[in-house]
Design a protein around this nucleic acid. Sequence first.
DNA 1: ACCGGAATCTGAACCGGTTTAACGCGGTGT
DNA 2: ACACCGCGTTAAACCGGTTCAGATTCCGGT
Lengths: 342, 342
Amino acid sequence: MRRPTIADVAKLAGVSRSAVSFALNDRPGLAKETKARILAAAEELGWQPSRPARALSLGRAGALGLVVTREPDLLGVDPFYPAFLAGIETVLAEQGDGLVLHVSSPERERSLYERLAADRRVDGVLLTDLRIDDPRPALTASLGLPTVVVGRPEWSGGHCAVELDDEPAYVEAVRALAKAGHRRIAHVEGPPEFRHAQRRRQAWERALAELGLPPGPLRPGGFTAEGGARATRELLALAEPPTAIVYGNDLSATAGLAAAQQLGVSVPDQLSVVGYDDTPLAQFVHPPLASARADAQGWGAAAARALLTVIEHGSAPDVRLPPAAFVPRASVGPVAAGSPGH
Amino acid sequence: MRRPTIADVAKLAGVSRSAVSFALNDRPGLAKETKARILAAAEELGWQPSRPARALSLGRAGALGLVVTREPDLLGVDPFYPAFLAGIETVLAEQGDGLVLHVSSPERERSLYERLAADRRVDGVLLTDLRIDDPRPALTASLGLPTVVVGRPEWSGGHCAVELDDEPAYVEAVRALAKAGHRRIAHVEGPPEFRHAQRRRQAWERALAELGLPPGPLRPGGFTAEGGARATRELLALAEPPTAIVYGNDLSATAGLAAAQQLGVSVPDQLSVVGYDDTPLAQFVHPPLASARADAQGWGAAAARALLTVIEHGSAPDVRLPPAAFVPRASVGPVAAGSPGH
DNA sequence: ACCGGAATCTGAACCGGTTTAACGCGGTGT
DNA sequence: ACACCGCGTTAAACCGGTTCAGATTCCGGT
């Protein structure tokens, strides 16, 4: 019942342990039939080399690390992580490598990375959800832990960055709204400490400026449903309410849409709404929610590939993926003729 | 720049490597001051024992495995997994253990578990989303891989089961609807191959029977938004449409709610709606969605604890957690006076 | 007959921990 | 004075792989 070791395979094949190792890692210097015999023996015993043993002698754990520091609540409604993880897996599965996932809080984060590094549990880490003044890039650098930053190069602190830009979709959304006649376009932003939330806000600001529109009202939404609903109520209570709202994500947007309807504001007749993420639900709410779609799975795969390269070669070139695309839907409509402020 | 090993610590403290090992794992038989000196040396060098080395000599990987086989799409909107993972982490963090996560498809699943077992990459696995005739319990048993089944004991195939029952919340939901006067209560079920989807359907059937109500119409919803929307349209197109629909999850329910509204059917005046999962969005859609809440984090923690026990002792008693609770909200209302079929 | 060299395989060291048996040593009991 | 004991410590074996420096064999060339 004991699991077979390399010695068992060697004995069965009538060779030394090193020969088995050579056969497995198909190194040159083994006669073809010997190699076949060894592989047959391994097959017969159902032998696979032990990861820990392999990791110890190679000095490579054969695993990547990902620490997720978002609130579990936030995680559960965001299609990003599952798709991202699936993308990582597609790359790791080829190598037979694994992903070690930790869910953490900002306080415990530091010691967690330290342990990951000191431990040799993983060969490198992916950094997601970069924050303003994020200590992690410097931390992993000082720990000598190979790192890939999932986000813009200027956030990466010298590490390899794998970027999928939000901005174009945002700009496009604002342009689409402007084209539909909207002039008061509000934004409900995500937690401002997140770099991507900040970038989305700046994209909105810049797009308004480029179009020669006045800066619109801004409210915090925290990427949550509750925040989206509250922000929406506040915006609609303004003396001059916006005729369109761009949200930081679909969760806020969906809640905002419902909040507007609850106030008797009809979407898109009196208010246009845009989300971000293109949640599976987006096209099935009423009215279907305009949003932005990003290839999270491709992002995960690219990030994993980049990290493997960093681990192997010490560095990797930055990667720039096709940006997210604006997805127009019925929640965006022409500005109402009788809309206030005209 | 080389990471310190146990030998470096031993040299610095002026003792043998075994003494360092003893000190670290606080075993008896070391003089107090020697131990203090060793720990000080370890601290000074920032030394932590290498996982792979430790795993090799202990024969324990120090990691649990979780294979997720859901569609990435389904994953992204379900608050279950993130909270579940967070719960696992709370338990593993104490031990310093890790979680190896794999995202897979049913086809690759088998070989993945085989590798996990042969590999010694993990000490045990958690089985979630049990299906009808799920091959996994028997597979992990035959692989000698310690296993905990996340679900009902009768699904576990002899493994330890950690259960959080859906049924009471479902029965309660149907009762609440019946009390509000509903007699034609439909169900939009999840993928029927999932045990928990099946159990929810049976709960609905049983509750109707117990209340003396006729069996209601049933439609597949696949736990998806699209499925929920389509099923709703079909149900509402019936000659005698239901006055209430109980969905397999919130995603279907939310899409169904929107579909109904799109058809001009007002909720809850003409149709009552109940979901399951209590998504963060549930109380922020319009009208707020009645749902059912389960402590997914507690579930994860309990499952992880049970698995650690199985790994250590070879078995563990089944765990039965408090069941999910029905959360009434405004999407449930009294049956309309003029409702057809009265 | 002898040498050189390629091809093939093995022995032993090593990765960084844990564990077990034994050892040195001062103190006790008789 | 001797055997015995317990305490604190260590050397060495072990976990299961990889790797590198030889060892062995077989071959052709001169």
